[in-house]
Simulated scan of single mutants.
Amino acid sequence: MYSPEVRRRVHNTTEPDVIIARGEGDRNTYFPDLVRLRGGDLLAVHYGSTQHMHTPDSTIRLVHGTADGRLWDDPRTVVDTPGMDDRDPSVCQLDAGRIMITWFRRDPLDLESPVGGVLTIHSDDDGRTWSEPIGVGTSLYRGATTAPPIELADGRLLLPMYGFHSDQDRTYAVRIAVSPDRGASWDVAAEVSVPMPAEPGVGLVEPELADLGDGKLLMVIRSRNHPENLAYATRSDDAGTTWQVPRPLDFPGHAPNLLPLPGPEDTLRLLLTWGEYRADDTSTRPVLGRLVDGHDPDLAGETFEIYAHPGTFDMSYPSAALVDPTTALVIHYDADRRQIAGTFVAVDQPQGRPTTSSAPRS
């Protein structure tokens, strides 16, 4: 079903290489995100909850790992709001060293409540202490996020979000929040709207951003109400001020993740991972990936399987970080096995196989 590349890139697709966190008591583990810190160590965050969503006892948990991704400390709680559902955390480190966690909050007893929204906290001491939450304003109704912000060369942060157009228009749309001061505040007036797809009725959720350099940005997005659940992609050539109309890709993608990779100066290689969310098979949701050229409008490449658990649908949401120049650690959740786990993926360019780059990296 998938490319034979899997045999070279992944050691074992049915058993993970490392366990990062396990469910504790009646709490399970969901929705992880991963970052490699400037010092080399890894940080992972995840949603700890008794069920997939809408629980008043959820927490956001942080786990510290060694640079090789093999050893992980016990998880600790960094966000726990009594009676609220704090969920879908992401983590990043800014150029100056600040670590930032983003997530969204819901009132699990009143899903129409305006209480909650998108929030951030930050740490300036390598995660030992954390700021009070900072709200991220948006024009969306019931805004959410599942990806960290990216930091541009001018210091602005761009945070991809999704939600309903309005209370009256329940079509899912994407907006980009802008912080002019590295996350200390978020300028609602500067929020950027991403165009809707050309296909009628298709909504957009779970956007993921990557900075391609020279003002060029790439966004890959999960769709809603597409008959084949195809993922979409859109691009900006002016540092996120305007965006192309999103166009469908060739795979059904759930919660995409983009990891820039080292490579020749004339290429821009990315590891693109996602959960396969097929419209004709809801029995499972394996983690898949491909190595792509960021300049390729189709993000084409050989698709390979990273982690599969047949018969389990409540899984995936991959996030990746490099552990050495030729190896990425891709983490994912599996609610049936009650774990956040990781799979090592070889991301080197096969010898003798030319890159698919069609344009120089600027």
Rank of each mutant, 00 (worst) to 15 (best):
M1D: 11
V6D: 04
V10W: 00
T14F: 10
D17T: 03
I19N: 08
I19K: 09
I20Y: 11
G25I: 03
G25C: 08
N28G: 14
Y30K: 03
F31I: 12
P32E: 09
V35S: 08
R38I: 00
G40F: 05
H46T: 02
G48R: 14
T50G: 15
H52L: 12
H54E: 13
P56V: 02
D57Q: 11
L62Q: 06
G65H: 05
D73G: 12
P82Q: 09
G83I: 06
G83W: 08
G83N: 12
S90Y: 01
L94V: 04
L94S: 02
M100N: 05
M100C: 09
W103A: 04
F104T: 05
V115Q: 15
G116L: 04
V118I: 14
V118K: 07
S123M: 01
D126A: 15
G127E: 11
R128H: 14
W130Y: 04
E132N: 07
P133W: 07
G135A: 15
T138H: 02
S139A: 13
Y141G: 00
Y141H: 14
R142H: 15
T146K: 10
D154P: 10
R156C: 07
R156G: 05
H165A: 15
D167N: 07
Q168L: 12
D169M: 03
S179F: 03
R182V: 00
A184F: 05
V188F: 01
A189I: 03
A190H: 07
P195W: 01
E199Y: 01
E199F: 07
L204I: 00
E206L: 03
E208K: 13
A210K: 09
D214G: 07
L217R: 04
L218R: 08
S223C: 06
T234I: 01
S236G: 06
D237V: 02
D237S: 11
A239R: 10
T241L: 13
V245Y: 04
R247T: 14
D250R: 11
G253H: 03
P256A: 01
P264F: 08
E265C: 00
E265P: 08
L268P: 00
R269F: 03
L270M: 09
L270Q: 02
L271F: 10
L272E: 10
G275H: 05
E276S: 10
R278A: 14
D280I: 06
T284Q: 15
L291I: 15
L291N: 02
H295M: 13
D298L: 12
E302R: 11
I306R: 05
G311S: 08
T312L: 06
P318F: 01
S319E: 07
V323W: 02
D324R: 07
P325M: 02
T326H: 14
V330D: 05
Y333T: 13
D334W: 02
A335H: 11
D336P: 00
I340W: 04
A341F: 09
G342L: 05
G342Y: 03
V347W: 06
Q349G: 07
R353Y: 12
S362Q: 13
